[in-house]
Design a protein around this nucleic acid. Sequence first.
DNA 1: CTTGCGTCCTGCTCGC
DNA 2: TGCGAGCAGGACGCAA
Length: 268
Amino acid sequence: MVGGVIKGVKVHRRDVVRDRSSRREGRLLSNHLGRDLTIERVGRRGKQLMISFSNGGGMIIRLGMSGRIALEDGSTRNPAPPHQHLVWVIGVPNHPERWTWMSFIDPRRFGGVYLFASIRDCRDRLLAGLGPEATSIQGRQLGDLLGRTRRAVKAALLDQSVLAGVGNIYADEALHRAGLHPARPGDSISAPEATRLAAAIRSTLRIAIQAGGSTLRDHILPDGSSGAFIEKHQVYGRGGAPCHHCRQPLQVLQIASRTSTFCSTCQR
DNA sequence: CTTGCGTCCTGCTCGC
DNA sequence: TGCGAGCAGGACGCAA
């Protein structure tokens, strides 16, 4: 997509375009949705997908619980699937006759698309308050962050202002891998435990991303394939089943209003 | 300031 | 087979 020009945008449901700016500029951007602009960069910060345009602006896509991005070759014209809210038609660089359809599909509509006028605007309005990247978190830094709170460590991991990029599945998986009980107060986590947890978060995410993530229901990759990490889940979705490590039945607790599955023998 | 809960939505699964 | 309750990958606003 990088280097491609957005040739057109179809809007099937306007309210998934969230306007967080009170300025007129923001409203104009929301109507415009990148039409006629060249895609300069595609990136990510925490759970936000970022597409920046050559004019300095861009957009952030949040998938929420059920959202996904689909990419299709322009030559295969399929009927719009249910809950397809936005479609961008993007020229393929160096192939004037080819184009890519990128669509935003989100049944529950907890996700959305946010436009920004400049990188600075993006940073101030959309990325402000995000914690450090979970994919590269180091033990020392994680220990400092957890040491500042008495909340359950699981609740802290889910808080994007503490650490950006971990959700319910990978919080449970990383805590199991690190051998830490999800209800432990953040400030009870020792330095060696924080080192273990940081390493567990990094490796859990690395392996999960490599496997294409966890397909429970809605999540599929942009090409339509499924993520295979669910086969590697140690705890998530396995409440009552035996721990792969010690064979004891896995426990289930609500922490920060989210289902948390863990092994009370292996996780202390 | 910190923390927890209700809410925003649709659709699937389970039990009666 | 039909139907309602409960639950789901996230994040925000509000109240205690």
